[in-house]
Nucleic acid binder design. Structure first.
Lengths: 190, 190, 190, 190
DNA sequence: AATGAATGAGGATTCATTCAT
DNA sequence: AATGAATGAATCCTCATTCAT
């Protein structure tokens, strides 16, 4: 719990921060992290100074983007897990994670690093996501829907992998489905 | 008209070119494409000028690295295909491709783009590789070792994906094997 | 026409102004004039906006700091001059000036410029200080305690110089005393 | 002895390096260290890149400037010491040091820090200068020309101090002479 | 052919100052 | 009056590429 929240943040400041985060997410994922900060600021309709006021470093901005995304995914996964029975929940979440992170070059890499780790700030959100994934996996295994010898590390690796695989199949949904099919089949017992 | 052939290249020049390519391969794959050209030149024991004489652009150097790698892989794949029966050859080549490209950040991405394509110069070598992969796939499918509905695009996607998955499992060979197992199982009929 | 007087200034505003001045004095003298205004504001417990309301420019703030210091020193010098006999007063004031300005990097420079001069606003206070120093010098010379050919410009120069000399002798009081001794001996007749 | 000299340096490179050093000396001493590197480069007739090739950091450039100056002064002081009898040599060197460093804002500060110290690279040259000054002082004291209780720290402090004093007396040579007179008188026995 | 010095556009970051709240 | 968010010019430094030696 974070009672010592950073401070309420004025309405306009909050708006700018959000804009920045949205724009950065979009820009980083479509064009990579090499995009100049200035361009991100411009796209968000603010000056560079504002960007740097909210995120003291370009890296901090990237981190914030990744954290937010992890949190969103984790939340949705939790919801899915609550509403659905284990087997179905597992596979639905698999797709969810892949779809939310695929097509996002650097983000995929960041997710990948959740297997090893990263910057302290990411720690928490990636840990949470890991925890959620572990639960889903365990549930699906108990329900007999996933081979029991599959562990968390390879699950994460497969998420990353399918994300990468999928990324270049954007134009071919049928092929994408076949990738899922191969992997899901491979994950099921026998 | 000059000689059509790209010039015989003096012995030392050829040596430099080869050194450069080796060093660049090593450096790009271990530290990413962000490494300054100057550093690559130094590591190869030549001046930057020499590097740029051989490769007019940093990108050209990267391309040459990728092309050479593709050619090597393709050649080994061809060898494997010739020496082994279709089913075995297919899975052996799958591993070969993954292992040769995995752990190579940017290279993986380059290979990935072979699914859609890239710079004209890569065309040929990636086409060759694609041809080889298509043959292997067809062979394995005729032998009943791979599900018939799997197509080339998703095969390539899976290669890229397993490469990505594998990249962060360097320290855990058992998990890596399980990833292969999942995907290979998923590729086989039933 | 507005009131000629600079406005009575609300109680809290006056308090802020004073705080700002104190903090700025401390910060400028210990860490140099390079310190960001924002930091000074924070240290004074106000927002930057408030700082700039009181001092329209960073330079204006620095100036106010210097002026206040000059005035303080001048006042103490006047007091000393009134209470003590000329010879003693002169040397005591010399020390006073040096000690109040020494160790204060930028301030020393500002004081130094009093020899040539500066911003209009400093004019008055530096003139006053100059007047006071001139009187002290004259008194000491009439009392036969200081060589008659020493003029105001070199007195100021020596004050600045001893300040500079002293600044790096903070840890060695004995050496500092010897510096004073050298200069005071040199100032006395024969 | 520096047998492992950094490398011969091509003629043009050496020329540029020297130009840069000269220009930087001039610019830093007349306008302070705040001057943009770009301006220094332009004044030296080279691009910024060249400046940074020779001096990897602005600070490194400043350091090089200071070192060169210290070395020059030390060399001249050594020469003076060799050619003149102790008493005279001491006072001549005092003036030399002051005149070479005075009027040079930041340089003075650097010299001053020789009392405490600085960046490793400066170490050597400032140590050499300190050694030279110590010899001169000892010689003059043995010759009975300087009070025996004066130590090296306060000598350095006085050099810095007279430099600072002198700096603002550029237009008044007579006053400057009187400053020297005061300090030299104070340094002599009785 | 090789070398490495020179170039300068480009990019991240800081900070005095303004202005909406 | 106070606040602190926004601004953007200014600055240091990097690096792909060119060119004199």
């Amino acid at each position: 719990m974070n009672d010592a929240s950073p401070r309420p943040l004025r309405a306009d400041a909050a708006r700018n921060r959000a804009r920045l985060l949205d724009v950065a997410t979009e820009v980083f994922t479509t064009r990579g992290v090499g995009v100049p900060t200035e361009e991100i600021a411009r796209a968000a309709g603010v000056g560079v100074g504002t960007l740097f006021r909210h995120f003291p470093t370009k890296e901090a901005l990237l981190e914030a983007v990744v954290v937010r995304r992890l949190e969103t995914i984790t939340a949705r996964a939790a919801q899915l897990a609550a509403e659905t029975e284990p087997a179905e929940a597992f596979f639905a979440c698999f797709r969810l994670v892949v779809e939310q992170s695929a097509g996002k070059q650097e983000f995929t890499r960041a997710l990948a690093e959740a297997g090893v780790d990263v910057h302290a700030s990411l720690r928490e959100s990636s840990d949470q996501m890991r925890g959620r994934l572990a639960e889903l996996l365990a549930g699906a295994q108990q329900a007999g829907a996933v081979r029991p010898e599959v562990g968390l590390p390879e699950l994460i690796a497969l998420l990353v992998g399918v994300g990468a695989a999928t990324e270049h199949l954007a134009a071919d949904p049928a092929a994408r489905e076949r990738v899922y099919d191969v992997v899901f089949t491979g994950l099921r017992p026998h």
